[in-house]
Simulated assay, not measured.
Amino acid sequence: MVEAQKGPWVGPWRPHRPRGPIMAQFTSPGPKYSLPGTTGCQDHCITKAKAPAYTMRGAKAPAPQSCSPGPAYYIPASITRNGKYVAPAQHICGRPKEKTEVTPGPGDYSTEESCKHLYKRAPAQSMSFRHKAKTQQGPGPAAYTLPRQLGPHTACSPASPCYSLRGKSERGSFAEDLSKTPGPAAFPKVQLDTYKTRAPAYTMGTKTAPGGQGRSPGPADYSLGKVTLIKSQAPAPTFGIRHSPYTLPLLL
């Protein structure tokens, strides 16, 4: 097999021409992020003015020589503008089934009662059984009481004014027991804050625990020569690795 490209070997592989564009070879974002065009109606740049677009149709097809549907659409002679013409014919079908029902006969009717609706007749009273009387026991004379004639609450006679006599109250009498009244010790002591200006009050609490429980750094843990926040610092260049030529630059 003959090699198509020849060149020096770089380690275990030989460099060759790439089949397509490599994004790392472009310093710009690449062809993927190209600006939209300003022509046409599709994918037009939104920052540019867009002129009115018109649609152009193609040429019309040539007109056929014959406009009839052809022999495949032959219309029979029985088809008219009102539909298909069919000669009058009688349909032959089976005999319908008859439903046999039991109807009343002449003996089921009573014609004697019909005469009173056709001819005049004297009024006739109908006689029925005697109704059952409802036996309900009513109150007797002894169930009623006459209103009283004496006293303030009389219904049919005037009454004189009456007064009610009430017993003598024990309060203020000679029989009042004064030992049951509350003494000075029965009333609670009123605080001074109720009727005077309240004095400031203070609360005594327990001693709080120290905040830091871990080990704190001492003076020897600080390096005063490396302080760069409040003092100027000399330039200190750093040495890094060599970057690839295909790496995009950092844009700030």
Rank of each mutant, 00 (worst) to 15 (best):
A59N: 13
Q213M: 12
K189E: 14
A53M: 13
E112Y: 03
G138W: 07
T47L: 12
G70M: 01
W9R: 07
S126G: 08
S157I: 11
A4Y: 05
P200H: 02
S164D: 14
K120H: 07
P8E: 06
R19K: 08
S68K: 10
S223W: 02
T27L: 14
E112R: 00
D177A: 05
D108K: 01
K196D: 07
M56T: 06
L192C: 05
T181D: 14
Q149C: 05
P104A: 11
D177L: 00
M1P: 00
Y195S: 05
A49I: 03
A89H: 11
I92N: 14
L150I: 11
L165Q: 09
A122Q: 12
P36Q: 01
Q136P: 00
Q233K: 09
L35A: 15
P18F: 01
A209P: 07
R166P: 01
S232M: 05
T206G: 15
Y74K: 01
Y74F: 09
P158D: 03
P184C: 02
H131K: 12
G105S: 15
H131T: 02
P184L: 02
Y74L: 03
T203M: 01
P161W: 00
A155K: 15
T47M: 08
P139D: 02
P76R: 03
Q213W: 11
T111Y: 10
K134T: 12
A51I: 05
W13S: 05
A155E: 10
K99P: 04
P106E: 01
Y74Q: 09
A220R: 06
P147E: 04
P245Q: 01
T27D: 13
G37A: 10
A236R: 13
L224Y: 15
P96Q: 06
E101I: 15
K97G: 03
P36L: 12
Y73S: 08
G94I: 02
P158N: 02
Q213P: 00
K50V: 06
Y246H: 13
R242E: 02
R166D: 15
I46T: 12
T135Q: 10
A4T: 08
F239C: 12
S223H: 04
E101W: 07
K132I: 10
A209V: 04
L118E: 13
V2E: 15
C156F: 13
I46P: 14
P152I: 02
